[in-house]
């Protein structure tokens, strides 16, 4: 392990101040499951680690059918995974965390960390984007809140500026008659990075799909929405043919690359298959 300075601020204000002063080379440490590996593999030049685990309040997890979810930056994937309320109300998020890394990693890794890492293939992002989650940010200018869909600017890049710390995630309560699904595609059943991930959240009222959001992972520089595919289904009585047509539209809306994990063509084809399956299952879940 390379040498670095270690800091343990007691408050968000202190942490923000530190990050501001220390500048580039200072990184927030929560779960550490990415950061420590990147230091060891020399993928990231880290001179300062700012451990936020001593800051009170960041480990809270609140969940209810009326209020939705709020969880702080220190809440691990494992805690989300073990919440039976989340499994019941947000099976999409539950599936995403359940398939993230290994048990050991899930017991360390924070969901906010997974988000801030801003990997296009991060499992937790598509379901949260599909559910219109917001991310709360503390910084030198005070507290701000932004839609998660607008938080990412590219692979590994977010709107966080120097001195800012993501403090928590808020997810709106699930609407009556809503269904939500996250499907992850990979070569293995566990310990896998998504080749493609598709999240669908939809509301059904009086037989029609009153609202829908489709979020696509690992097929663009950030997690993408598929607005045209969504528009094809919004307000409609969903039939298998319509769902297939929307899935084809989603294929046209993604921008995958080819790499060692998969070709772009295959990723695009899987967007079609997974979108169709996810919409169908989300619809079933509303029944």
């Amino acid at each position: 392990m390379r040498r670095f300075e270690y800091h343990e601020p007691a408050s968000l204000a202190e942490a923000s101040e530190l990050l501001l002063c220390l500048g580039e080379g200072a990184f927030v440490f929560a779960g550490g499951t990415d950061l420590l590996v990147e230091i060891r593999e020399r993928l990231r030049r880290v001179h300062h680690i700012v451990n936020i685990k001593r800051i009170p309040g960041l480990d809270e997890l609140m969940i209810s059918a009326e209020g939705g979810i709020w969880f702080g930056a220190l809440v691990t994937a494992g805690r989300i995974e073990r919440s039976s309320e989340i499994a019941r109300l947000y099976p999409n998020l539950h599936d995403a965390v359940r398939n993230l890394g290994s048990i050991q990693v899930r017991n360390r890794a924070t969901v906010v960390g997974n988000i801030c890492r801003a990997s296009p293939s991060a499992d937790t992002i598509p379901p949260l984007v599909a559910d219109s989650a917001e991310i709360e940010i503390f910084g030198p200018g005070g507290t701000r809140r932004t839609a998660l869909a607008e938080f990412f600017t590219g692979p590994g890049r977010t709107t966080l500026s120097r001195g800012e710390i993501a403090t928590g995630i808020r997810v709106p309560p699930p609407a009556e008659g809503s269904g939500r699904v996250y499907l992850k595609h990979g070569r293995r059943k566990a310990m896998e990075l998504a080749t493609v991930g598709v999240a669908v959240s939809l509301n059904r009222s009086r037989g029609t799909c009153s609202d829908i959001s489709i979020a696509l992972g690992a097929v663009g520089p950030t997690v993408l929405r598929a607005p045209k595919a969504e528009a094809m289904l919004r307000g409609a009585v969903l039939s298998p043919e319509m769902i297939s047509a929307a899935a084809n539209q989603a294929m046209a809306e993604c921008t995958p690359i080819s790499n060692v994990r998969s070709s772009a063509d295959y990723r695009r084809a899987m967007v079609g298959v997974l979108t169709r399956r996810a919409v169908t299952r989300a619809l079933e879940a509303t029944a």
């Binding site: 070569r187 293995r188 059943k189 566990a190 310990m191 896998e192 990075l193 060692v260 994990r261």
Partner: peptide
């Protein structure tokens, strides 16, 4: 080498 590591060299694991 394109995948010299266990992230992208895919061995089946217990779940598989």
């Amino acid at each position: 080498s394109l995948n010299a590591g266990l992230v992208d060299y895919k061995m089946p694991l217990s779940m598989d």
